[in-house]
Computed example of a mutant assay.
Amino acid sequence: MLRDPEALRARRRWFGSRLVVYGLLLVFAAIYATPALIVLLNSFRSYAEVARHGLIAWPEGFSLETWVDAWTKTCVSGMCEGIAPNFYNSLKITIPATLFSTAFGVINGYILSKWKFPGSQFIFAMIFLGVFMPPQVSLLPWAWIMGQLHLANSVYGLILIHSIQGISFTTLFCRNFFATVPDELVKAASIDGAGFWRIFWRVMLPLSPPIIIVTVIWQFTSIWNEYLFGMVFTAGYQQPITVALMSAGVGDQSATILIAAFPPLLVYFFGGRYFVRGLTQGALK
């Protein structure tokens, strides 16, 4: 059967371009995945094995002993009780701070988008400014506040800091999302006799799951991975896991790193598609 030579050439060009594109993607994927693969393999190797064969080598055996030691025995700031206390500290900090900052962001976004009042634009501008403010700028004010409230070297102090610091982002996300909701819905509910809170609970909140998922994922990963405030305001048993990683002793470090990275990876694994969907839904609504 005869074929069109021009069509064959076009097909070859298309196939060649696809081959180049996917080849480059594989190369870049390998470059980015190699460090993670090295860390994963080393998490099954003891410190003595790494010392004998170097950092890049195949494990002699796939034992979970290094993971157990990292959880229960690795030395952090001179205390050899494992990374578990610091892991639980991060959970104690991240979960309530995420919930508080998200709740305040949803309410702020609702007010600033649907209940505008004189000065509301200025207030939003000041909140929005916090998105661009480096955290280092707020260290001294927070140090004074922590001293006045006697919350220094406490997970409760970090909960307060992250709850307040996250309001700028959550307010921005929620305000932009609620601004896309038709004002007619709020007016219709007001005509029917609904007040501020009833409109919030019955009208706005049922429309909010996409943006709430976005803010929860954003806040959880940001707070979990935060280092500066934990390093400055906590020490010893009160440190979150990101700070403890920097002060962990030699040995079991790869397993410790993976344990610390597990919660954000788990959040993105189960919620990543909802994160993208929430962003796009807010943009296209």
Rank of each mutant, 00 (worst) to 15 (best):
L266F: 08
L205T: 05
S101K: 11
M231V: 14
P134H: 04
L207P: 08
T256Q: 05
K92C: 10
A261K: 12
R3S: 11
R273Q: 14
N225H: 05
G109Y: 05
V214M: 11
L91T: 12
L139I: 14
L205K: 02
S101F: 00
G230L: 07
F173N: 04
I56M: 07
V186R: 09
L205H: 02
W14L: 15
K285T: 05
Y237E: 12
A84R: 15
F270P: 10
P59W: 04
R45W: 08
Q165P: 02
F44K: 11
R202S: 11
W144Y: 07
V68H: 11
L245F: 11
W197A: 10
P210M: 10
V131W: 02
T221R: 13
F173V: 13
F233A: 04
F15V: 15
F196G: 08
S46F: 01
T102C: 05
A143C: 00
I241A: 09
V216G: 03
A7I: 06
A194G: 09
R277Q: 15
W224K: 03
D183F: 12
S190Q: 14
Q253N: 05
F100I: 15
D69I: 02
T171A: 04
A36D: 00
L19E: 09
D69M: 11
I93V: 14
P263G: 08
D69G: 14
L284P: 00
T215A: 13
S120L: 06
P85Q: 01
T171C: 13
C75V: 14
I199C: 12
P263C: 02
L279P: 10
I241F: 09
L140T: 13
S247L: 12
V21C: 06
T94A: 13
E81A: 12
W14H: 15
H53E: 15
Y274V: 12
I107E: 02
R52T: 12
L64H: 10
F122Q: 09
G166C: 02
L207Q: 12
R198L: 06
Y268T: 08
P206R: 07
G272I: 06
Q121P: 01
T74N: 13
I83N: 06
T242C: 04
I191P: 01
K285M: 03
I123P: 03
C75N: 15
I164W: 09
I123N: 00
V267F: 09
G130C: 07
F62S: 07
R12F: 05
A260H: 10
A30M: 03
Y22W: 15
G166L: 09
P264A: 13
H53Q: 14
Q253K: 10
V250A: 11
Y268V: 02
T66Q: 13
N89P: 10
Q148P: 00
V243H: 05
P35H: 00
P85R: 03
A84T: 15
W201Q: 03
A235C: 01
K73T: 11
G23M: 06
M1A: 13
I259D: 01
W14R: 15
G119A: 08
H53L: 12
S17Q: 14
L8W: 08
W58M: 08
S222N: 11
T256C: 01
F15M: 13
K114S: 04
F128I: 06
T170R: 11
F100N: 01
G195P: 03
M146K: 00
V243M: 03
L41C: 06
Q239C: 08
G23Q: 10
P182W: 10
S138M: 07
M204P: 04
A283P: 00
A7R: 12
G230H: 09
F275Y: 11
K187M: 10
V76Y: 01
